Amino acid sequence: MDAVVVDVEANASVTHLGLRRRLLTLGLPLWEVLSPQQRIALLGHELGHFTHGDTRHGMVVGTACRSLSTWLYYVRPMPNPNVIQAITNLACVPLRLLITAVMALLDLLTARASQRGEYLADGAAARTGSTEGAVGLMDRLMVTDSIVTTLQRETNSRRLRGTGRGGEQNTDGLWEALVAHLGSVPESEFERRRRVGALRGHSVDASHPPTHLRRRLLLDGTPVPATVTADTARTERIAGELADVRGTLAREVVRDGYGDL
């Protein structure tokens, strides 16, 4: 990887930046609730998209998807427009429709390859962080809505308390509260989510196969041990490297509200 970005999404992804550079984006809320081996499985999964030549993460299609998403962002309608802005919004309608149509076409043409890529990346996650770590990662992915709800509750609570010393809002223990909440979720709730996911075909998004099928494929195969292990020293070095980012993102989330960034 040539660059790593840490944001506040409960997700992770990889993409190309131009012709040669690769970008890894880690969502801190997801990272925080994972065990060390689940984190390694997550990295194994994301890097596995490059290893197996996943079309949507490749240089051509991946860059195209990213560019189209950026263009769509810039031509989005301006809220509460004045007269000139309203005219601009109307003028951008054909361009928005064209970009949306091309993105839909790319999704359609790469859907099967993308789903195959997810299964292969899951295999990379298991080989890297162990089958147990990869399965645990998928269980966490099934409760991302709970991660979002907990962060919204915690940030709103801190905003309502007002400011503390130096006029800053209290951000202490934000990520710890998130970890504590996910740690208190009983196994019965995870099992309920699995059954609901099997009935509804739960997936992270349309490009991903249903999570219960991905999980079942790993469990039906021969369990594999981790090729990369998270010893105490390595875990502490990673935590130290992320310490400043954790503080910065906690302040931004509490200041601006989660979901509004």
Rank of each mutant, 00 (worst) to 15 (best):
L98N: 02
T131H: 04
A180H: 02
T110L: 01
H45R: 12
L95T: 13
N11E: 04
V148Q: 13
P77F: 05
E168V: 15
L97S: 08
S207N: 14
M1I: 13
A101K: 13
S157I: 02
Y73L: 14
A233Y: 08
P77M: 04
L249Y: 10
D256I: 14
L213Q: 11
T110P: 05
G62W: 02
S184G: 14
A91G: 03
E252H: 04
A198P: 05
E187G: 01
G257F: 06
R161G: 09
T15K: 08
L217N: 08
A126I: 06
L23T: 09
E46D: 06
R165V: 12
A230N: 06
V5I: 14
V33D: 09
T100D: 15
L17W: 13
R158L: 02
T131G: 03
V4E: 14
G27E: 01
A206I: 00
V253M: 15
M59T: 14
L90I: 02
L261C: 09
G221F: 03
G240K: 05
F190I: 00
T51F: 10
D172G: 05
L30E: 00
A125H: 11
R140V: 07
V6I: 13
G259E: 12
V93R: 14
E241H: 15
V8G: 05
T171M: 01
E46F: 10
R195V: 11
I99P: 04
G129D: 04
R193N: 06
L109D: 00
E154T: 05
G221H: 06
L219Q: 13
G162R: 01
G164K: 12
L105W: 05
V148L: 03
W175S: 01
N156M: 06
G18D: 11
W71K: 11
D7T: 11
N89M: 07
L30R: 04
M78G: 07
S130L: 04
D260R: 08
T70H: 10
Y258R: 09
T100I: 02
S207K: 14
P77N: 00
G53D: 10
T155P: 00
H49P: 06
V60A: 14
V224Y: 01
G201A: 09
P79L: 04
A12G: 09
L26N: 08
E118N: 05
N170Q: 14
H202T: 15
V254I: 01
D256R: 13
V61T: 03
T155L: 05
T235V: 12
S114E: 08
E236K: 10
A41F: 01
P29K: 10
L26P: 10
E252F: 01
A177D: 11
R112A: 13
V93H: 08
R161L: 08
S146F: 03
R216Q: 12
R116Q: 02
A91V: 11
R194V: 15
L109S: 05
G259D: 13
G129S: 00
M142N: 07
E241K: 15
L120M: 07
P210H: 01
L120E: 12
